[in-house]
Computed example of a mutant assay.
Amino acid sequence: MVDAARPTAGGRHAATRVLSRNESSHSPSPDIVATVAASGREVNRYPDPACTGLTLALARRHGVEPDRVAVGAGSCALLQALFQLAGPGAPVVHAWRSFEYYPILAGQMGICSERVPLADDAHDLTAMADRITATTRLVVICNPNNPTGTLIGLDRLRAFLDRTPPTCLVALDEAYFEYVDEPVGTGGLGLCDTYPNLVVLRTFSKAYGLAGLRIGYLIGAPRIVASLRELSLPYAVSGPAQHAAVAALGIEEVLLARVRETIAERTRVRAALMADGFAVPASQANFVWLGLGEDAGPFGRWCARTGIELRAFDGDGIRVSIGSPSDNDALLAAAHQWRVPDAPELLTTGAVR
């Protein structure tokens, strides 16, 4: 996917502060770097196709049997398999705006993408339940939602699942779960026993800082996991990725301390943006959302000219990843300048406030 705010030719320099991809701003832990380096000595061999060590580690971590854990090359690979399970012609319901990959996957699989508008930047679960029919085979809920960062509490999820027929699979995409600091954000794993049509996806790309290794996982009923394993490409998850993920689980407290630093920065950035007059919904992810509407594109280009790359959705809004304190300071300075009436970008676009 192309970042709309990336600078173009004509004198604009390439962005040096990348706040568009929701990556961890922290360098990899030395323990993980050492693990990857050691596993590199075996790259002449195929990796374990069953991801046995990681599957067992995840089963222990979450208190489930190993047959309830599926590992994939990023949670996107597992989402792709879920869309395959839904089958061509079966409508898939998801919120919009939400993760951009959902409608792309639907198009690839010949599936009708039923997009349900957000309500106040959050999932409208009542409207989503109303869209489910006898032919609906999959509903995807991104929680916290990407790109708005909003969170659905477990009570609302339970009410939604109570309305969902058992023939319809519900995929709870919790890629940003570790960044949730609200009491209601305990995650959906505890609901899987009550609702066997529920699966929960998580990733090592964000809080665990392994985006470059592409590794994610899913927890659900054994029958669903077995079907997903059958659809998986052989040897899709590399040996270094498997070893790094196991190592990350072993130093989870260290990594979650870094997450708390990101949460503190998220709070600071949101407060500063709101003080400058931006509307910023409360985020439970490692990014914040600016619902700028028609000003989204101009603001993205304005920041790109200062060397800051954001994720701009033209006509809708801007997603700002939380980066290092210095990167965040640069973003806040650019956003503050955007509010100055005589700023050059405002004069050329007519978007004076």
Rank of each mutant, 00 (worst) to 15 (best):
R311V: 02
E230A: 08
E230N: 04
I318M: 04
A236D: 09
Y217K: 13
I219D: 12
L290N: 03
S326M: 01
A245I: 11
L249F: 01
R229Y: 01
L292A: 13
T203A: 01
H243P: 01
L201A: 10
E253H: 11
M274N: 09
R214P: 01
D314W: 09
N328W: 00
A236W: 01
L310Q: 08
T262W: 06
S232R: 13
E252S: 14
G209T: 01
L310W: 12
L218R: 06
D316L: 04
A279E: 14
G291V: 00
Y235P: 10
I322L: 12
H243E: 10
T267P: 00
S326C: 00
F313N: 04
G315P: 13
G239F: 10
E294M: 06
S238A: 15
R311K: 14
A221T: 09
E261P: 02
L255Q: 11
L256G: 03
W289E: 08
E252C: 11
S283M: 05
A275Q: 08
A275D: 04
R214I: 01
A271C: 10
N286P: 06
R202A: 10
R223T: 08
A236G: 02
I263F: 03
R268P: 09
G250P: 07
L231E: 03
A285W: 11
I308V: 15
D327W: 07
L210W: 02
L231V: 01
G297L: 12
G212K: 15
A226P: 14
V254P: 00
P281M: 06
P298F: 00
F313A: 03
A244N: 05
G291H: 12
A330G: 07
Y208I: 07
V246D: 04
G239A: 15
G300M: 09
G277H: 13
P240R: 10
Y217H: 14
A248E: 08
D316F: 01
H243W: 02
G300D: 07
A244R: 04
G220H: 10
C303W: 02
T203K: 04
A296W: 03
E261F: 02
F299V: 06
R260Q: 13
D329Q: 14
I224T: 15
W302R: 14
A245T: 11
R268Y: 03
L231N: 00
L292K: 03
I224W: 03
G220N: 10
V280M: 08
V288I: 15
M274S: 14
G216E: 03
R305N: 12
G291D: 07
Y208Q: 15
V246R: 15
L292S: 07
A271F: 08
A271K: 15
G212R: 15
Q284G: 01
S321A: 13
V237T: 10
I318R: 06
N286K: 13
S232Y: 00
N328Y: 04
D295N: 12
A285H: 11
P234Y: 02
G239K: 13
F204E: 11
A330Q: 12
E230K: 08
L201H: 04
E265G: 04
G216L: 01
A304E: 05
L273H: 12
V269I: 10
Y217W: 15
C303G: 05
